Computed example of a mutant assay.
Amino acid sequence: MESKSMLYIGQDPINLQLVRYLLSKKFPHVTLIQACNSSEAMSRLEEDAPALVLVDIQLPITEEYTIPEKLKQPSEHESPPIWAVSGCVMDQDIVRAYRSGFDRYFTKPLHLLSFTHHLRRELDG
């Protein structure tokens, strides 16, 4: 199976640990790369060309909603899919995320079976 990478943007150590564990068990061919903010993510995107970007939206910080626009700016690389994972479950939060350019939106706590299914389609498809 082809080796790939996934970029995780976020600062919550528990969520990062969950994603790292999930990848190690279900997607051992996927390397997890971490960035704490959008500027760090931009450099990692250029350096590593990940197959997927996962943004952990933490309120009250709203900088995460600007990440898709920044990452999808014209560059020499095609922008990977950008997914959001958030504890915000209100319809307006989900609509805001999609309007901001996220390709998928998952709510916390993650339904691991569904999330793993979507990861498999994206990373192994």
Rank of each mutant, 00 (worst) to 15 (best):
N37H: 02
Q17A: 07
G125E: 13
D48F: 08
G10P: 01
L16F: 07
V30W: 06
K72I: 02
I9T: 03
R99T: 04
L7G: 02
Q11W: 01
S38P: 00
W83G: 01
H117C: 04
E78G: 08
L59K: 06
L123I: 10
G87V: 04
C88H: 07
S100E: 08
P109G: 10
L59R: 04
S86Y: 04
H29C: 03
E46A: 13
E64I: 00
T31D: 13
N37Y: 01
S114N: 09
M42H: 00
R96E: 10
T62C: 01
Y65S: 10
S79C: 15
P60Y: 03
Q34D: 00
P74M: 07
Y98P: 04
T66M: 12
M90P: 03
S75A: 14
S100N: 09
T62R: 07
K108C: 05
L18C: 06
P28I: 14
C36V: 09
P50V: 10
T107Y: 10
T116I: 09
R104P: 00
Y98Q: 11
R44G: 06
D93R: 07
G101N: 03
L54M: 03
F27D: 09
S39T: 14
E46I: 09
F102V: 03
S43T: 05
Y98K: 13
D91N: 12
L54D: 01
Q92Y: 08
P60G: 04
T116Q: 10
I33C: 04
L7H: 00
P81N: 05
G125P: 11
L7P: 02
L7W: 01
E46N: 08
S38Y: 11
E122R: 09
H117K: 12
Y98G: 01
N37I: 02
M6A: 10
M1T: 14
Q73A: 12
Y105W: 11
L32C: 03
H29V: 02
F27A: 08
P81T: 04
S114P: 02
Q58D: 07
V53R: 03
L16E: 03
L23R: 05
P68H: 08
E46W: 09
V55D: 07
A49E: 13
R121T: 13
L52I: 11
S79A: 15
L7Q: 01
L22M: 12
V55E: 06
G125W: 14
H77Q: 15
L119F: 09
I67Y: 15
S5C: 11
S100G: 13
L45K: 08
I57E: 02
D12W: 00
L112F: 14
L32W: 06
K26M: 00
T116K: 04
V85C: 14
A49L: 12
E2W: 10
F106H: 15
A51V: 12
L112I: 11
L113N: 12
R104S: 03
T66P: 03
P13G: 05
H77K: 15
D91A: 13
S24N: 00
D12N: 13
L18Q: 08
S3L: 10
P28N: 08
I14Y: 03
I61K: 04
L52D: 11
I94H: 07
M6D: 02
P50R: 07
C88A: 15
A35D: 00
P50T: 07
Q73H: 05
R121K: 13
Y105E: 05
L16C: 00
L59T: 06
L45A: 07
P13T: 06
Q11F: 01
R44P: 02
T107C: 14
Y65E: 10
